[in-house]
Design a protein around this nucleic acid. Structure first.
Length: 433
RNA sequence: GGAGAGAUGGCAGAGUGGUCGAAUGCGGCGGUCUUGAAAACCGUUAGGCCCGCAAGGGUCUCCUGGGUUCGAAUCCCAGUCUCUCCGCCA
């Protein structure tokens, strides 16, 4: 959410930002409503003030005089009621629009329409060249009996899978390794709720707009029965962890908060029919270790944190010796609330390209305003924190490059050294039976 | 799932229709005293919105949303959450 004052005062900038991000935001309507809202509030406040003044007096009056004033105030109360209703109506629409206003955008963000316009900043590592015919992760998983997509689909529908045996253990190893690494860097580990209230989705900026992508429990959809739970499955632990301090005022000394959320993530992937249907790339359920940061309301500070989060994720890929590149996400591929965003794309041999595995975002105070998370600064003033987040590892997508890059000619998979302690010391995944 | 109790400021806790945004205590902050500290004493100590260059003023908020009333922390309705007891259960 933007500071409403900014929308009014810098309307040209906001209009431009909405255009660049490809968002529709009815700025003119917002300004119109804002003007109306102020006017109505001034009038309503005046009538309320009249009422309050009379209330004190009526208590002390008696007889006819009292009855006369009460009769008079009855009229004022009626007027006030009508006016308040109008005000409430206007505010309602005003708030809905405010939630749709685009967050500010960094100068560093390249302008573009979609992910095709993202700009590569640098690469790390070299894709492996195979001296034998390499398999893709689906074939490897099937042959080693560690990934079972067919049965996953049988049980849970399209875009579902089982991880099995060493496949299951490997995923846990990667996640555990990553979490430990973050904890060693000062992060606090979180196992957050995966089922959250509407306000958490709203506060982090996924709603309104992203309702299609979230699994909802007990919420009425067209043609479906109504149930009483109004709960949503998170698409990322960012939703729960960033909301952790909702409606709280922190002290400046305790910032930055470095949080590592570990959870399953659920995504409906609506509107992606036919896209990335092969293998474990685009699926409905995965596990992720997410970095979430709350820091001071200072662009330099959040830029520093952004760099920090990016490097943490890169380190994990470097530990795993997986080649990757970092891109600057362009305006059109960025979310409503994001100020600056980098994706890390890891080399995936079977795709013959880099595929998105991480997403690092700076929000400034966009989320903090919605979540009402403040801190008291050195002057004693209350300010909204800045929030950031970045994937540290997400699996099973990361298994795609991992399995494919680490495969051997005999069909076995070498387990990266850093993961071996998390796999009971095992160094290879081989065919069992 | 059944029965009951409750939700008030940072915390504890009064207040059951009329100057109540709210007593009191604790905590926090500032000060007096002190070589320093403690104790004691004095003062101060919520947030949102609106008007205003500012000083300042108005308004809203006692879980949330409606309602009754000239007037609601207090009365009514709905919802949420917490606690206790019983049942069920990973």
């Amino acid at each position: 959410m933007l500071d409403p004052a900014i929308i009014i005062e810098q309307s040209d900038l906001i209009r431009e930002t909405a255009r660049k991000k490809g968002l529709s935001f009815d700025l003119d309507r917002f300004i119109e409503l804002d003007t109306k809202r102020r006017k109505l509030q001034v009038e309503a406040d005046k009538l309320r003030s009249q009422k309050n003044e009379a209330n004190g007096k009526i208590a002390k009056m008696e007889g006819e005089e009292r009855q006369a004033v009460i009769a008079e105030m009855k009229l004022v109360a009626d007027q006030e009621k009508t006016l308040s209703e109008d005000l409430r109506e206007v505010e309602k629409e005003w708030k809905i629009l405010l939630l749709q206003a685009p967050g500010l955008m960094s100068d560093k963000t390249p302008e573009g329409k979609d992910d095709g316009d993202n700009v590569e900043l640098y690469t790390w590592g070299k894709p492996r060249s195979f001296e034998f015919e390499a398999k893709d992760h689906v074939q490897l998983g099937l042959d080693l009996d560690i990934i079972d997509i067919e049965r996953g689909v049988k049980i849970a529908g399209s875009r579902n899978y089982f991880l099995k045996g060493d496949g299951a253990l490997l995923e846990l190893a990667i996640l555990n390794y990553t979490l430990q690494k973050l904890v060693a860097k000062g992060f606090t580990a979180f196992l957050p709720p995966m089922l959250v209230k509407h306000e958490a989705m709203l506060g982090t900026g996924y709603f309104p707009g992203g309702e299609d992508q979230a699994y909802a429990l007990g919420v009425q959809r067209p043609g479906e029965a109504i149930e009483s739970d109004d709960k949503y499955l998170i698409g990322t632990s960012e939703v729960s962890v960033a909301s952790y301090h909702k409606n709280e005022t922190l002290s400046e000394e305790e910032l930055p908060k470095l949080y590592a959320g570990y959870s399953y993530c659920f995504r409906r992937e609506a509107g992606t029919y036919g896209k990335d249907t092969h293998g474990l790339y685009r699926i409905h359920q995965f596990q992720k270790v997410e970095q979430v940061v709350l820091c001071k309301n200072d662009k330099e500070e959040s830029a520093k944190m952004h760099e920090f989060l990016l490097k943490n994720a890169e380190e994990v890929l470097q530990d795993l010796a997986l080649p990757y590149r970092v891109v600057a996400v362009c305006s059109g591929d960025m979310g409503q609330g994001q100020y600056y965003k980098n994706d890390i794309e890891t080399w995936m041999p079977s795709r013959g390209s880099y595929g998105e595995t991480h997403s690092c975002s700076t929000f400034l105070d966009f989320q903090a305003r919605r979540l009402n998370i403040k801190y008291k600064d050195a002057n004693g003033d209350k300010r909204f924190v800045h929030t950031l987040n970045n994937t540290c590892i997400a699996s099973p997508r990361i298994l795609i490059p991992l399995l494919e890059q680490y495969q051997n000619k005999d069909g076995s998979i070498t387990i990266p050294e850093v993961l071996q302690p998390y796999m009971g010391g095992k160094s290879k995944i081989t065919k069992t039976i």
